[in-house]
Amino acid sequence: MKEYHAQPDSLAGKTILITGAGAGIGKTLALQCAEFGASVILLGKTVKKLELVYDQIEALGKQQAAILPLDLKGATEQHYIDLTDTIKREYGKLDGLVHNASQLGVLVPFAQIEKSIWDEVIQTNVTAQFLLTKALLPVLTLAEHATTIFTTSAVGNQGRAYWGAYSVSKFATEGMMQVLADEYENSTLRFNAINPGATRTAMRAAAYPAEDSTRLKTAEDIMPSYLYLLSDDSIEVTGQRINAQ
């Protein structure tokens, strides 16, 4: 899977929504999905960043992207319902959903976690993903083979001191994926989680400010696992936790 080579038209005809699409892994994945033929829906909170990604996709001369500005910290259930209605009206179905956006919070001892930070991390990393997935299930079922990718972490599989709210949120993410995979085992929907590993992103820099980032894999380096799970080559794969490195 880490060595997967997507074919030029492997995502042709597919509509894929990516959260946190304005930067980092989300931006790189959006460009890759467009390159391989998908219509990409860019969801994020910063319109300017999304517009820059949109322009880069336009420059590829591929399928036109769409921008959906939404702040996961403040979005209500109705926002996700309205978003689903828009996708159904404009595209008729949704083939892929990538939960890429995450909130790190603050790395401190458990006893020092402020409730406001806890609430923010859980809202973005768990509640928003629950509401978005729940709302989009009807349009995912309209696709011939639909895939949902959650983003997990090493600390979502083995708890680590000081990672508090973020670690707990990633345990919840993996649990959500497993519940959905089990419920939809005999359907056209599949649910998996990717652990990107140590990657050269702004979140990684915030967690490890003294680290030499040039020694890390880039977002481009870890794309094969994402492209594999988004393609029909993975239609038998569900309920898996996959390490991209």
Rank of each mutant, 00 (worst) to 15 (best):
R89C: 03
G26I: 03
K2W: 05
T151M: 14
M203R: 06
I25V: 06
G20C: 08
Y184T: 10
V155I: 12
A205G: 04
V121A: 09
T199Q: 09
A146T: 08
I18S: 09
Q123C: 06
Q103R: 11
I117G: 06
Y228A: 08
I194C: 13
D82P: 07
I113S: 01
A143M: 07
S10C: 15
T152G: 14
K2R: 15
T238L: 04
E183Q: 14
Q32G: 12
E211A: 09
A154H: 02
L107N: 09
F36T: 10
S225P: 05
T84G: 15
A12T: 10
W163P: 07
M176F: 10
L43P: 04
F191C: 12
G105H: 02
D233R: 04
E185T: 07
V40L: 10
K49Q: 14
L72P: 01
T76V: 04
Y80F: 15
S187V: 07
N100K: 06
L83H: 04
A21S: 11
E236H: 07
E174C: 05
E144G: 07
E174D: 15
T148R: 02
A12R: 04
S213W: 02
F110W: 08
T15S: 14
Y162P: 00
P8R: 06
A135E: 08
A59I: 00
T84R: 15
V106N: 01
P196V: 05
T151K: 02
D182N: 15
L68R: 08
M176N: 10
P8T: 08
L104Y: 01
L11F: 04
R241N: 12
C33M: 10
K88N: 08
I222H: 02
D85N: 14
R204L: 07
Q63L: 04
R215H: 06
E3R: 12
T19F: 01
I149C: 09
Y162K: 11
L180W: 03
G197V: 07
I113Y: 03
Q245I: 09
L72Y: 00
T28R: 09
N125W: 01
L107G: 00
A181M: 12
V126I: 15
S187D: 11
R89H: 08
K217A: 15
I41G: 10
Y166F: 13
L60D: 05
Y80D: 03
P209R: 01
M223V: 02
T84V: 08
V126F: 04
T238C: 07
D182C: 12
K73Q: 11
A193D: 14
G159C: 10
D82K: 05
E35S: 14
G197R: 02
R160F: 11
L50K: 02
A172Q: 03
L70E: 10
Y226N: 08
A198W: 03
T84D: 11
R190M: 11
Q158K: 07
V47M: 12
N186Y: 10
E120S: 15
R241G: 04
P209A: 01
E183A: 11
A101Y: 05
E220H: 05
D232R: 05
Q78C: 02
E185F: 07
P109K: 01
